[in-house]
């Protein structure tokens, strides 16, 4: 089946279809995370007392994860630059690094979760921990989803680099826009849950 406007710009929108599609999808994602952030704002502002977040959670772990995710954003950009300039090995190197950094983020998150569980700190403990596990859990699922797409582009999907390089580069850019969005969500989760 021929999918129109994957690389050609559609005259009435001025965009390729995947570009418009990913931004509309991200608009819905903004509202998904918006509902969670506003739930946090409502529960915190309405509470009589709120735990000292930085004492309950580990700021060093979260700082490390922030650096990891920001680093994965730059490697994702460099993977796209590699694909765009027709250098497959360069694309592979940076996409591989992006995947590794995504895995490192989830590993640190797993250590954090495990640490909380082992101290009896569960989502049912209080409103803050309920929000913490929900918000970081939904975010971690997004990281995992991005890794699945990135792994496809690095592995079986990379055959398109030879058959249709322009379309492949667009796919990498679209996957990148999603990946950076996941980074942006963490950029807000970090201060809101750990520092404020």
């Amino acid at each position: 089946m021929h999918i129109p406007y994957t690389t050609d710009v559609r005259p009435d929108t001025g965009l390729t279809n995947p570009k418009l599609g990913i931004w509309l999808f991200l608009a819905s994602e903004v509202m998904l995370f918006g509902s969670l952030f506003s739930a946090y704002a409502l529960l915190r502002s309405g509470s009589v007392s709120w735990p000292d977040q930085s004492a309950v959670l580990s700021v060093p772990f979260a700082t490390l994860n922030t650096v990891i995710l920001i680093s994965s954003s730059i490697t994702m950009v460099l993977a796209w630059v590699g694909a765009k300039s027709g250098e497959l090995p360069r694309f592979r190197l940076y996409m591989g690094l992006t995947l590794l950094l995504g895995a490192a983020f989830l590993a640190v998150k797993a250590i954090e979760y495990n640490d909380k569980f082992s101290h009896g700190l569960l989502p049912s403990t209080d409103n803050f921990l309920g929000l913490y596990f929900t918000m970081t859990g939904v975010h971690a699922i997004h990281v995992l989803a991005g890794m699945v797409v990135n792994a496809y582009l690095l592995g079986p999907g990379s055959g398109m680099f030879r058959t249709d390089p322009a379309r492949f580069t667009n796919r990498v850019e679209i996957a990148g826009i999603y990946w950076h969005f996941v980074d942006v969500v963490w950029i807000f989760l970090f201060p809101v849950l750990y520092l404020l």
Binding site: S73, V77, E173, G176, I177, H180, V184
Partner: peptide, 8 residues
């Protein structure tokens, strides 16, 4: 910064 430059 991320939205303007990384997400183009």
């Amino acid at each position: 910064l991320v939205v303007l430059f990384f997400m183009h």
